[in-house]
């Protein structure tokens, strides 16, 4: 990292018009284990690599259910993600009480992005060090959003975040135009193929090393783990053409630091 006198406070602009503290918070997202999401005309799939901080612990949670129609996959500081997920769940419940319906994802994501933004403009709080992929099926159809510590948010057809996510992104960019008409099984397979590029060099993706979630039209949010994923894993092994891990020296990507509460 490049140290300079403008990089220790969120409230200080650099002469180039950049906010280094915010950029460093974005860096925390890149250190977290990879997460990705993709959507068809009817469904959204989230997938993430599970990482355990040491041999004896269970892996940290990567995908959080928010409501019957919505969930989020994260990369970055898990503790930050948990408090933001709690906020989002509360918003969803409040909405259900007031309107009797599930919340529009775009509006929840906007509120979430504003929460991020507020931390970047005042001295009292640090930015959140987590990137989120929000998957939802609401009254305007299936959606996939990404939020950043900067308070920016985007709506994507497919996106990957976290360590070594570049190869997944490359895979998704190559195939995303086909996603619209994919059925759910094909979509899940695309997710797994894309994710297999994010695994650390010498290992291979296996059903126990990842977590996956589905939400869609007439399909409530559901997480799949371990054995439930094995049929899909077998299928992609047969089909081949999964994303390949990139070189370790791949520019922006850094080796993960799994002991720092990163997931």
């Amino acid at each position: 990292m490049f140290r300079n006198q403008y990089d220790t406070d969120v409230t200080v602009w650099s002469p180039q018009g950049r906010l280094h503290q915010v950029e460093y918070a974005m860096e925390a997202v890149k250190q977290g284990g990879a997460s990705l999401g993709l959507r068809s005309g009817s469904h959204v799939v989230l997938a993430a690599l599970k990482r355990a901080p040491n041999e004896m612990s269970a892996p940290q949670k990567k995908i959080f259910k928010l409501d019957s129609n919505m969930g989020v996959a994260i990369a970055g500081l898990t503790a930050d993600a948990r408090s933001l997920a709690k906020y989002m769940r509360t918003e969803c419940l409040n909405h259900k009480y007031v309107y009797g319906t599930t919340m529009q994802a775009s509006r929840l994501v906007l509120d979430l992005a504003d929460m991020h933004q507020r931390t970047t403009q005042s001295y009292v709080r640090r930015p959140y060090g987590v990137g989120m992929l929000v998957a939802a099926h609401d009254q305007t159809g299936p959606h996939l959003f990404q939020t950043c510590p900067s308070g920016n948010y985007f709506e994507y057809v497919a996106m990957a975040i976290g360590a070594r996510s570049q190869s997944a992104k490359t895979y998704l960019e190559k195939h995303f135009e086909d996603f619209e008409n994919c059925d759910l099984d094909e979509l899940v397979k695309h997710a797994l193929k894309a994710l297999s590029g994010c695994v650390t060099g010498d290992k291979e993706l296996d059903a126990n090393g990842l977590t996956l979630a589905i939400v869609g039209k007439d399909k409530v949010f559901e997480s799949l783990e371990g054995e439930q994923l094995q049929p899909y894993m077998d299928a992609i092994e047969l089909e081949g053409n999964a994303a390949q891990p990139m070189d370790e020296g791949d520019g922006e990507e850094k080796a993960p630091a799994p002991d720092a509460g990163m997931a």
Partner: peptide
């Protein structure tokens, strides 16, 4: 547009 995978008309 920062990515071609962005949904048209968003943001």
């Amino acid at each position: 547009l920062i990515s071609k995978m962005l949904v048209a008309g968003s943001n």
